[in-house]
Design a protein around this nucleic acid. Structure first.
Lengths: 109, 109
DNA sequence: TTTTTATATTGCAATATTACGATGAAAGGT
DNA sequence: ACCTTTCATCGTAATATTGCAATATAAAAA
């Protein structure tokens, strides 16, 4: 025990959980917000912005990329990261849908 | 090491991360989806729906409640849970905002 | 070619999460 | 009073995550 029982849930449920888990860390939220702030792709300056060591930032970037939240392009010496809007759109849609379905319910608490 | 360096991030970043972490597990996603499906509050039948033992489900429900994603009312012998729409609205707004800000950016990847 | 710059990977210690059996608490039914 | 039902809590084992020093890699600059 200790491992999530992924097999017992639907693919969609696991997919959403993986996306949310990728963003469920303040450092990774900060990375996304920095990407928005600089209004362009980031190439390395994230390490200077975050209060974390370079390997830690690199690890967080990899997790965001694996989940499909950001995209990364090798640009010569540096690497260029930016937000994958398609994935954020999925999340926005997911929560918007919960709100729609939820408003039809007869709330009791 | 091992613990998230919460102190180094803003309150907003931590707050979003906590909300997303609460939903970053397929069992908790499944709980929310069941709440939507039954179109009412759930009073105990979640344990039968999920492939997890009762203490595990109870623990997941507590995490969702602590994060403010669901509300819970004691109803005699049973407990009645339902979605807190205000919190889902926060999340929906957060992602919608990312999309708006992101569309102003000159994407390079 | 050597050095520098930028990022990734490895290995590991500290901590957190997940899952569940056992047990507890509290209300309802008999 | 006694049992049953419903849910929470405790304790604990298995596993995952976080963070970083050390090291590797790979392209640019000198």
């Amino acid at each position: 025990m200790g491992a999530t029982k992924t097999d017992h849930f639907t693919d969609k449920q696991n997919a959403i959980a993986i996306l949310l888990k990728a963003l469920a860390h303040p450092a990774r939220v900060a990375i996304i917000e920095h990407l928005l702030k600089v209004k362009s792709c980031i190439c390395g300056d994230i390490v200077k912005e975050l209060p974390l060591a370079q390997p830690t930032v690199s690890q967080h970037l990899r997790e965001l990329k694996n989940a499909g939240i950001i995209k990364g392009n090798i640009e010569g010496n540096a690497v260029c990261y930016c937000i994958d809007e398609k994935t954020i759109d999925k999340l926005q849609f997911y929560f918007a849908n919960i709100l729609i379905e939820s408003s039809n319910n007869n709330q009791c608490c």
